[in-house]
Amino acid sequence: MHDAPAIAVSGLTKRFGDVTALGGIDFEVPQGTVFGLLGPNGAGKTTAIRILTTIIRPSSGRAEVLGHDVAEEPATVRRLIGLAGQNAAVDPNLTARENLRLIGRLTRLPARRLDPRAAELLEQFDLVAAADRPVRTYSGGMRRRLDVAAALVSEPPVLFLDEPTTGLDPQSRGALWELIRQLLREGTTVLLTTQYLEEADRLANRVAVIDEGRIIADDAPGVLKERLGQTVIELDMGDEARAAEAATLITTRLQRAPGREGPLLRLAAPDGSMLLMDVMHALEGDGMVPRTIAVRESSLDDVFLALTGHRTEDTP
């Protein structure tokens, strides 16, 4: 068990009636690493987390946490994990301190540790000032912080964070990222789901892209970015004919084929500004001036377009 991966998933499926939420996924997370599960709403991220945290049972396949099967030894798995979900799972009528004490009691923390552990977490999550106010008076960001704190009460070796930063302001998001890095330094394994490519890139040692219940890419974020491009350049050529013409020029002169969608051309690269210069050079001699040029960080949508040929909204 000492050498077991923190999380091992193989051939995992989950069906709800006729709907297949997970169509057989496989991945492994070594101890002490962060694994990112990246995908749009409805891709199956939350279903995977709910199976791994013993909330629901898989339809088939295996899922293990530190060598313990989640379906066969749920009681053991529950002592090894912490979960922070999408909907802040805290009691609104209790104060932050009472919430943390409750979770402490339910995770069998020794009674003398309840108060010190709650105080530590309140400090760590910047909730000291509001610690003794009912949670229903909290802002969304404060609730989310408390939710993550609650997942850490028992200092679990494996932590599941289901879209931990969705709906957080940039400052809170940054603070949470720093905290996840801190946990990682302490040896915790983290599985986090996210809709943000940037978040997966910044935190995860490895990222699996999930779409319609299947993993369509599983690699180090650097490799994914290399494959998919970090920066996206979008050229609006005005009409489809000019777009086709420009695409041919770029393909012959730069040895790379842009993606086409109506009058739009799209190119992704790790180094966007360099590519933009090259593209402009390739086009200028023939008077192919784009109507508009957009340069942006690649989004989850771009990743999906590159991997699946469809946009995230197309996901049924």
């Binding site: 013993t54 909330i55 979900g85 909907n87 799972a89 979770i103 069998r108």
Partner: peptide, 10 residues
């Protein structure tokens, strides 16, 4: 959402 957490606790 609290029930979701309760189910994941020992």
């Amino acid at each position: 959402g609290l029930m979701e957490r309760f189910r994941s606790l020992p």
